[in-house]
């Protein structure tokens, strides 16, 4: 038996909107730790890892570990029927091939339940090691989204370079080139508007902008985004989900042929 009650149902709606274009089908894993997902895009170039910790739910009952295969487009269709202020409860019985999403309006005057068919998904679970990164950049998520969108109108790839001068986002295309440098800025009153660069050593990596733009669909989940770079690892683009956990996108770099 599984019953997860999320008062801030809009979080789940936002999570779905941020992953459904990247991943078609995925297993949601439910354990005592929380509600999680790990899935790669169909090209195996990007990976998404989501964790919503059990403590973040108003009610969290998960009698035994359960993996539920869902088509994310269908799940999104169902969650779009929930109001932004609705409380969402996810329910499933052991051995059932369906999951139920229950939506309650804040005033309890409307209660809806949507039952969705589950599917068997054969997916490998990857081991992601704890790692030291050469550089970690924290910046406003809206700023990062703007940069990715702007650069994708010029080129297909972005070179992200971190030096002690700051973080530089560069692209080139048929019409020309573009460089955007963001310097460390901690003087602003609001911490979420600051840009903080931790650099152990300079790093420069090239990524497909199409994937970066897809990751920025998670912007509504967090004011800040953290970009962790190392020359030996995929970049990690992380959006913290307030009080609950995170959504992390991993993207393998492009390298010189």
């Amino acid at each position: 038996m599984l019953e997860l009650r999320l008062v801030q149902g809009s979080l789940l709606k936002k999570v779905l909107e941020s992953v459904k274009d990247l991943v078609t089908d995925a297993n949601f894993d439910c354990s005592a730790t929380g509600f999680s997902l790990q899935a790669m895009d169909s090209s195996h170039v990007a990976l998404v890892a989501l964790l919503l910790r059990s403590e973040g739910f108003e009610h969290y009952r998960c009698d035994r570990n359960l993996s539920m295969g869902m088509n994310l487009n269908n799940m999104s269709k169902m969650l779009k029927c929930a109001g932004n202020d609705d409380i969402i409860t996810i329910k499933a019985d052991d051995g059932s091939d369906t999951v139920t999403f229950m939506f309650e309006s804040p005033t309890q005057d409307k209660i809806a339940d949507f039952e969705m068919k589950l599917m068997d998904i054969d997916s490998e679970h990857l081991g992601i090691p704890e790692a030291e990164y050469h550089a970690i950049v924290r910046m406003p998520s809206a700023e990062f989204a703007r940069i990715c969108k702007d650069l994708s109108s010029i080129g297909d790839t972005v070179v992200i370079s971190v030096t002690k001068e700051g973080v530089k986002f560069s692209t080139r295309g048929d019409i020309g080139t573009a460089n955007i440098v963001c310097r460390q800025n901690t003087s602003v009153d609001k911490p979420e508007e600051s840009t903080i660069i931790e650099m152990n050593e300079p790093v420069s990596l090239t990524f497909a902008l199409r994937y970066m733009n897809s990751f920025t669909k998670a912007t509504p989940l967090a004011n800040s985004v953290t970009i962790s770079l190392s020359s030996e690892l995929p970049v990690v683009v992380e959006y913290k989900i307030a009080e609950m956990g995170y959504i992390r996108f991993y993207l393998a770099p492009k390298i010189e042929d």
Binding site: E232, P234, D257
Partner: peptide, 14 residues
């Protein structure tokens, strides 16, 4: 030209 690496080039299966 650039070669796109894959996630599996970095992370192994659990």
């Amino acid at each position: 030209s650039c070669l796109q690496r894959k996630i599996l080039d970095y992370f192994g299966e659990n």
